[in-house]
Design a protein around this nucleic acid. Structure first.
Length: 399
DNA sequence: TTTCCACAGGAATAAAGGGCGA
DNA sequence: TCGCCCTTTATTCCTGTGGAAA
């Protein structure tokens, strides 16, 4: 086989990165109220006062992270004009970090120079906080820490310790402000009262985008990302509609537009069409399944396989016990050891939360009791493709 | 109005595994 | 090398839930 060659292809995109999540637009569209409230909460920083701790909440893709980056960029720019104000900011995404311990290590390693980072395990908890406070003390001035997807942390130790570091005398020279961002609307309720009162000093709620606002967001990116006339009729409208229908957020809509553009490019098409959008949607739905299962253990895959079998037999929505029986058969066929029922319930909860399956509570009263029934939330072929891709990717990993 | 069912899910705990420092 | 300290994943035990049936 002859070696493939790479050639630049700029027929579709002018700046593809403008469709990526990390791209910060020059202005935030459709979030005027939120931005105004957020800016107000950041005012103490520019006054060189103790910053407020801010908690942002709202569904994923409602512009929380984009608004934060946008405002912090402005804040850093304007802080340079203020005499005596020494501002440092750091953004940490807590996705993949399960504990305060891991998050603290991440912060330490971000603050330390490359050769002086610490390992991710093996340290006593007290040592980790000592390292952290040392780094914060070295910074001086004002330090704003953004903890994106903060609900991924299973404990609130860091959220309790950091806002109190100064009052407890662990840090004397640095003013610390915490900005917590969460997609989980119940996260705030789950926090202990002590943490809630400090972290949620100021709160900004981000509501879901309306379909017309989504179109506005997409059109803003279209101007930067694509060459003129590349997007076919209704592509923006279709992406906004699917985005609103699937998750009601801008990220899904932008991902869809990016994926549609990529498909069009791979086919050397001159134009991105609604047919590309449709195929992009199928592909992204399968991605959700793949990512969701990959994060979990092999058992999550088998539990989902059991639900898929039940679906194919027209036996969904299925009760936990029915899924358990099919799951056990699958595991036994493979010669493995099935997990217990309690753990299986946790996996079912995970799949539900990831949006791969859907759990509905039923109550049959005195004779039947209360229970949940589970079914696929994505089309069966999408789930099946996702499961196959996980197997393939694992095979590639091992080879 | 009370009872009862079938789970759901929280809490505590164990086991296994991995990195660090003395 | 070994003990310590952490993580992850699993288990057991137990309490809470809420609506139909009595």
């Amino acid at each position: 086989m002859t070696a493939p060659t790479f050639k630049p292809d700029h027929t579709i995109y002018e700046n593809r990165d403008a469709l990526r999540e990390e791209w910060t637009p020059k202005e935030i569209v459709g979030r005027d109220e939120e931005i105004a409230e957020y800016q107000q909460s950041l005012q103490p920083v520019i006054n060189n006062e103790q910053p407020s701790n801010i908690f942002l909440y709202g569904k994923s893709g409602t512009g929380k992270t984009a608004a934060t980056r946008f405002l912090l960029n402005l804040l850093e720019r304007d802080a340079q004009q203020v005499a005596g104000l020494d501002l440092h900011t750091l953004e940490i995404n807590c996705d993949g970090l399960n504990t305060s311990y891991q998050a603290a290590i991440q912060i330490i390693n971000e603050l330390r120079p490359p050769g002086e980072t610490i390992s991710e395990t093996g340290h006593p908890q007290s040592a980790i906080y000592r390292f952290l406070y040392d780094e914060l003390e070295k910074l001086g001035g004002t330090f704003l820490l953004v903890l994106d997807e903060v609900d991924h942390l299973n404990d609130d130790s860091l959220l309790y310790q950091l806002p109190r570091a100064r009052s407890n005398g662990y840090v004397t020279d640095t003013k610390i402000g915490l900005i917590g961002i969460s997609n989980d609307l119940d996260f705030r309720k789950r926090l202990s009262r002590k943490v809630r009162s400090s972290l949620c000093e100021k709160e900004v709620s981000f509501s879901a985008y309306q379909a017309d606002q989504l179109q506005e967001v997409l059109r803003q990116r279209e101007d930067v990302a694509f060459h003129e006339g590349v997007l076919g009729d209704d592509v923006i409208v279709r992406c906004a509609d699917y985005g609103a229908k699937d998750a009601g957020d801008a990220r899904t809509a932008l991902d869809l537009l990016l994926e549609a553009g990529d498909i069009a490019r791979s086919e050397h098409a001159d134009e991105v069409t609604t047919a590309h959008v449709r195929r992009a949607r199928e592909r992204l739905q399968a991605d959700v399944v793949v990512e969701g299962i990959q994060k979990n253990s092999e058992h999550a895959k088998l539990v989902l396989t059991a639900i898929l079998h039940l679906h194919e037999d027209d036996r969904t929505p299925a009760r936990t016990a029915e899924i358990r029986d099919v799951y056990r058969l699958i595991v036994e066929e493979q010669g493995g050891n099935p997990i217990g029922e309690r753990s299986l319930r946790d996996y079912l909860g995970d799949l539900d939360q990831l949006g791969i399956t859907e759990a509905v509570e039923r109550n049959k009263g005195k004779g039947g009791g209360k229970y949940k029934v589970h079914s696929l939330a994505k089309p069966a072929d999408v789930v099946s493709e996702g499961l196959e891709r996980v197997v393939e990717e694992k095979t590639i990993d091992h080879s």
